[in-house]
């Protein structure tokens, strides 16, 4: 605010004809600079990761060993695997719940309940990741170990993904806490996609005698499909990059294993655990991991935004 006042004071002294183009130019340069940061971040990471990229090449992604003892070998496969598994699990649990929330808040809830409930669900996003992690360690972990995981094992224990002894801090627990964290994102964007469906679409279905749920299923969900898909992909982006809560829940063991009841490691958790203690080449390998994470997140988010934008724009344009 202070600097705005300075800008204003400078602007007041300018001749009339100069002010406009100068101001527009300044704001454009700043805006372009902000967006350029995205490219700069990628370039800086690529530059700092160069020793590792040069040494390991594409085999970095496939390698399963991370050994800082000379001759140093670094491979990313267990972390990429852990990231994909926990994110997939987060979506598997989080998406149905988020869709239920979005449908309830935009279609089924009584009008007086919609605003306060929407607001309360948004509060889930206001809780910092590290607080989720703390809650994970002291509340969710014991619950998972003694209640939820044994129950899952009792019913689905024949599946290879539910073998072994439930320990509470494992890939399953990490997936659950990620699910909690993607719910606000997915439900909020899905709700927007549902609200963007035109009212006459609903009215047409209702006037044919459809119930609220039938209206939702036939006239609303179908039209919001692309937006909901975008919302899910945005949630995926959030899950892939999430660091603290996962680091505190996943048990931190870097191996690929099928069972969700085994400890694991994600790209982000491995970086968080090792970054400040790494030697030069290991550091460069960790930065390359960061670069992989950055590119994954860029890809996911660009795709998701394109999906969401298409839907919301259609809604706006027709309204």
């Amino acid at each position: 605010m202070l600097s705005l006042r300075i800008v204003r004071r400078i602007a007041r002294g300018l001749p009339r004809s100069l002010g406009d183009p100068l101001f527009k130019g300044l704001s454009a340069v700043v805006a372009i600079g902000v967006v350029a940061l995205l490219g700069i971040i990628t370039l800086v990471l690529a530059f700092a990761a160069e020793p590792s990229i040069r040494r390991f090449g594409p085999s970095f992604l496939a390698g399963g060993v991370w050994n800082p003892v000379p001759p140093e070998v670094f491979g990313a496969a267990p972390f990429v695997y852990g990231t994909l598994v926990t994110s997939a699990l987060a979506l598997l649990i989080g998406v149905p719940i988020s869709l239920g929330i979005a449908i309830f808040l935009s279609e089924l809830a009584p009008a007086w309940l919609r605003i306060p409930l929407t607001y309360i669900v948004e509060l889930l996003a206001a809780v910092p990741s590290v607080v989720y992690g703390l809650w994970g360690i002291f509340v969710l972990d014991p619950t998972m170990r003694s209640v939820i995981e044994p129950a899952v094992q009792a019913t689905l224990g024949f599946l290879p993904i539910f073998q072994g002894t439930p320990i509470g801090s494992d890939k399953f627990a990490a997936g659950v806490i990620l699910a909690v964290m993607v719910v606000p994102t997915i439900s909020a964007v899905s709700r927007e996609a549902l609200l963007a469906v035109l009212a006459n679409q609903r009215e047409a279905a209702l006037s044919l005698g459809a119930t609220r749920w039938e209206t939702t299923r036939l006239a609303v969900l179908r039209y919001a499909r692309a937006g909901i898909f975008g919302a899910i992909i945005l949630g995926l982006g959030r899950a892939v990059g999430e660091t603290m809560a996962v680091t505190m829940m996943i048990g931190n063991r870097n191996a690929i294993s099928v069972s969700l009841f085994d400890q694991g490691q994600t790209i982000a958790s491995w970086i968080a655990n090792n970054f400040t203690e790494a030697g030069p080449l290991e550091l460069s390998a960790l930065i390359e991991l960061g670069l992989v994470l950055m590119l994954m997140s860029l890809l996911i988010n660009v795709f998701a935004r394109l999906m969401v934008r298409r839907v919301l724009r259609r809604g706006e344009g027709a309204a």
Binding site: A31, M294, N301
Partner: peptide, 28 residues
């Protein structure tokens, strides 16, 4: 429109990546 789009994308960059970026910039 494209600045808006990429600013949106930027809000989703994983925060740990931003940490690595700040670290690397200052180290270099």
């Amino acid at each position: 429109a494209s600045i808006r789009f990429f600013v949106d994308v930027m809000t989703q960059v994983p925060s740990i990546v931003v940490g690595i970026f700040a670290y690397s910039v200052i180290l270099e």
